[in-house]
Simulated scan of single mutants.
Amino acid sequence: MARSQGINKELSNVMNEMWKLDVNRMRPGIDYKINLQGKAGFVSEGSNHARDSARAPLFSYVNDDKLKSMDTYAHFIKLLDNYETSTGVAEQVTKEELQENNLFLDAILKTEVMKCAHRYLVSKGRAQSDQAQFKRQLYDMWFKLYHRDRNGGEDSCGFEHVFVGETKYGKEFMGLHNWVQFYLQEKLSHVDYKGYKARDKKDTPDEDDHVLNLQFSWNGLIKPVGSCFIGVSPEFEVALFTIVFLLSDERVTNVTVKVDEYLMVIVVYRHGRSIGTSYPKMISSNNRDL
């Protein structure tokens, strides 16, 4: 499963089942509202300058009460301030942070989304049926620290890169593929949304889309193209990326799936037995093209 040119129907079926089970997904136009504004421009490699095609934030409204009251989101948000931003700076994990990691995994493992993912992985021989063993497997994939920068200590993990974001030498911005972190950082004025990235003139996203390709800066560092799910629950993202990671032994996996109306490539990079990065890459948001 190193690379998939056509739609992977089996994985699409599993992910659509998880999509239907994702009762914690936020509803566009009700639980949150986004303001797409203009189409983002080209950014040359190594540049930290981009035309701003969006004067207003991406998120014009999010139901904060709902965000903080749902169990998996509440535990997820507690993890977002547990990391050193820069690679090369060794992470110091406290007992409290270890407990927060475990409580988050406990919370998502109770959801039907993760139960579905677990059943599927057991059926493929990629996970043990015992939930405690599966939790340890998830912990190693997402939270076990490793060296991203060879010059420093254990400075990174899959969760930090994918869901929190990090910088390289203070000059390059990596990761941050999560909408909750994007929204919270935008509220703090750390994220500056620059506009959406469309595949072509016929493929413009709309405010109801749950997958977007975006351009933005984080603490002054540009992300020329960043892609993420919008509104989906933390458990859905963890489940989806976990499945793709565990089904493949390749260093880089690209698999094409159709989830709901969205045709996308799920990209997962392996860092030993842990996730290096993972994100969805939108191919088309126009249902008529699928």
Rank of each mutant, 00 (worst) to 15 (best):
S44L: 08
E45A: 09
G46L: 06
G46P: 06
N48G: 11
N48K: 05
R51H: 13
R55V: 12
A56F: 02
P57R: 01
V62E: 01
V62R: 04
N63E: 01
N63M: 02
N63A: 04
D65K: 06
D65P: 00
D65M: 02
L67F: 00
K68G: 01
K68C: 00
D71N: 12
D71W: 02
T72R: 03
Y73E: 10
A74G: 08
A74W: 03
A74C: 11
H75F: 04
H75V: 05
D81I: 01
D81V: 04
E84D: 05
E84M: 04
E84H: 06
S86G: 08
T87E: 15
A90D: 10
A90L: 03
E91W: 06
Q92T: 13
T94Y: 01
K95C: 00
E97M: 09
L98K: 15
L103Q: 12
A107G: 11
A107C: 07
I108W: 03
K110Y: 05
T111K: 06
E112D: 14
V113D: 04
V113G: 08
K115P: 15
C116A: 15
C116D: 06
R119E: 07
Y120A: 11
K124C: 09
Q128M: 09
S129C: 06
S129W: 01
Q131G: 00
Q133K: 14
F134M: 00
K135N: 02
R136Y: 09
Q137T: 07
Q137A: 01
L138N: 07
L138C: 09
Y139R: 11
M141R: 11
W142N: 10
W142K: 14
F143T: 10
L145K: 08
Y146G: 13
N151R: 14
N151Y: 14
E154W: 13
D155G: 07
G165F: 03
E166W: 03
T167Y: 12
K168D: 10
K168V: 08
Y169E: 14
